[in-house]
Amino acid sequence: MTDFGAAISTAFALVAHLDRDLSEVVLLSLKVSISAVLIASVIGLPIGAALALFRFPGRTIFIVVLNAFMGLPPVVIGLIVYLLLSRAGPFGVFGLLFTPTAMIIAQVLLITPLIAALARQVMETLWLEYEEQLRSLGTTPLRALGALLWDGRFSLMTAVLAGFGRAIAEVGAVMIVGGNIDHVTRVMTTSIALEVSKGNLALALGLGIILVVLSVLVNGMVYFLRGNQRQGGTL
């Protein structure tokens, strides 16, 4: 119990002082995960919509693999990106290993399947409703894709949020490809892991509390936006 008490007071102290090191870590966490979510959404949402709309050979296998990839272990992704970006790897010349860019790449690989798979489910339900009407109006596949993504935008937010949740919370991939270098690639989750291994439990818990609060804030913000739209009757 004393640990929890100490953790909470540490957390408050951290926030109250707005320690520069801390804000650096928090901002990098947000920067990496938000960038990853934006990129993964741009890739994953159209893939999900296309899977719902189009029938092509190998579609079922693609969907099964995609669903399986929703639960990829972050350390495995980290390892693969590490091998690709290391000096001896195929992309070694770019010198990206142990940079925030490497962390973004790893997180994009991690959450794109998740966003695409969830988007496919949302889009499939919507397409079931829209298909006949849109075909009757003479839609092209591309216009149908656009209409589905736009009309499903609020439901798709859930898929994007799930991606954000997974990105901001994971530690394995960013630890391997980022290296947890102070002032360069240290994010909240890697800090927590480090503080725990140093025995600095109160500080680790304090960081953990801030991480959870941030996560709740982001989700709350999106839910609030969505709620307002709902009242406007857009859904």
């Binding site: 006949e132 009407q133 009757s136 009309d151 857009t234």
Partner: peptide, 12 residues
């Protein structure tokens, strides 16, 4: 053009 038994309206 066709009108269906259940109207299908876009969310707009």
């Amino acid at each position: 053009a066709m009108v269906f038994q259940r109207p299908v309206m876009l969310r707009r």
